[in-house]
Design a binder for these strands. Structure first.
Lengths: 237, 237
DNA sequence: AAGTGGTCTAGACCACATT
DNA sequence: ATGTGGTCTAGACCACTTC
């Protein structure tokens, strides 16, 4: 494990445990260098991670301070920065899927563009409704190139596809680009998600990338409006 | 201007201009060091900015590659990483505000918590509907501590408050935490935004922070569902 | 074996805030 | 004037990929 990860984890824990509290001034970088036995650049890198996460603030000439957040917000922010699949997000709760379709098809034109693959490629076409603790939660329509993610079985899509990709195929998921918008549910969506006709839904269109740079997933998720929210930290520079 | 900013801007431009295209391998860090006359750490920092923005991918042992995005997506991603107010976002279009309320009040309890100020503090209470090119777009309810952001005049809230804070007060906006959720419009919201009763709206709850670490803004924005989307780049590590 | 990006250091100098 | 964090360097060593 890298030193800067160890340091930033350690400091994040101290904030989460309340050892450093909101608005409190933290030790100077110089002192942290001594304490962790590392150079200035390494400590700086560790602290910058926490700045990006939105937990602390640095002021040149003055020092470093815990951000003005209450304990609850601190916890949420610390969570929001991790990128996980739905199954991991609702760890501890029962996540099951109802499969509406699972087949291999020639890639639809719009998906070929998003996945940047040849128009005569084949992809898995996965359509499922996911339930958390027996409540319908989200309807997912997902395309994955069969060349990149081979051998998907029904049992994988009943559970976590991300887990299959990482644990079984030993591929590394690197990042995702997601666009969230809002519209009215279609009648079919309303029925599957237990909503009234015309109720709001949140639509998340997502492309997932492996660490090889290839797009491995293009998906559109329709979320129940009452069970959806995203947390975003915006930073200047 | 710092060297790593210059370098990352230069490379971003080359990607935007199509000088480096999707999936193309970029020059090695070693060569970029020579080209820009800088050290490895500096070039790495410049490239890491583009990684966070979602434009490029690095693979240890192999090299650095432009991400698998079409030109349109590249442009959107490059834009999405900047944090601006509404007025700046719709630069070039006519942005005006209809003021529903503009007063100074004792801070409501829930806002005092979010802003982390004393419960007997006073805040500006700003309620306005913003129009882009004469179409209603978003309804904003905003609280700002009068001690932090003094002297707001009606002409400021008709235009851009962010601009007033930065240009006139010479304060630095550092970051914002935003939570986006979805619900049905109230009758009043529907009327003001030109929607039907019960139509979907996107609700963005936002806290803005100055570089001093103080929260200067707590706001709730109600967006028309057909004119709202957010772009998010998620990264592992 | 050679070459890539990743981490880390020790020290220099700079920009900024406080005293 | 002092001390903070910010940038930058030159060079070392490591982890990984490719040949």
């Amino acid at each position: 494990m890298q030193k800067y990860i160890i340091i930033s984890n350690d400091i994040r824990n101290k904030i989460l445990k309340g050892e450093y509290v909101a608005n409190q001034q933290m030790p100077f970088e110089k002192d942290l260098c001594v304490h962790y036995g590392s150079s200035k650049m390494t400590v700086k890198k560790a602290l910058d991670i926490l700045v990006t996460e939105g937990l602390i603030i640095k002021r040149r000439g003055s020092g470093t301070f815990v951000k003005d957040l209450n304990p609850e917000e601190i916890e949420r922010v610390a969570m929001a920065n991790q990128f996980r699949g739905t199954t991991a997000l609702y760890a501890g709760q029962k996540v099951v899927s109802k499969i509406l379709n699972f087949s291999v098809v020639k890639v639809p034109e719009h998906a070929a563009k998003k996945l940047n693959i040849a128009p005569d490629s084949f992809v898995y076409d996965i359509h499922r409704v996911r339930y958390v603790d027996d409540e319908p939660f989200v309807m997912e329509k997902m395309y994955m190139p069969i060349d990149l993610i081979p051998n998907i079985k029904e049992k994988n899509i009943k559970g976590s596809i991300y887990e299959y990709i990482e644990k079984d195929l030993h591929l590394n998921i690197q990042s995702a680009h997601r666009t969230v918008s809002v519209r009215k549910a279609t009648d079919f969506e309303a029925e599957e998600l237990g909503l009234e006709k015309g109720d709001p839904v949140a639509v998340a269109e997502q492309r997932g990338y492996l660490d090889t740079g290839s797009a491995f997933e293009f998906s559109t998720s329709i979320h129940r409006y009452d069970k959806f929210s995203v947390e975003i930290v915006l930073t200047r520079n």
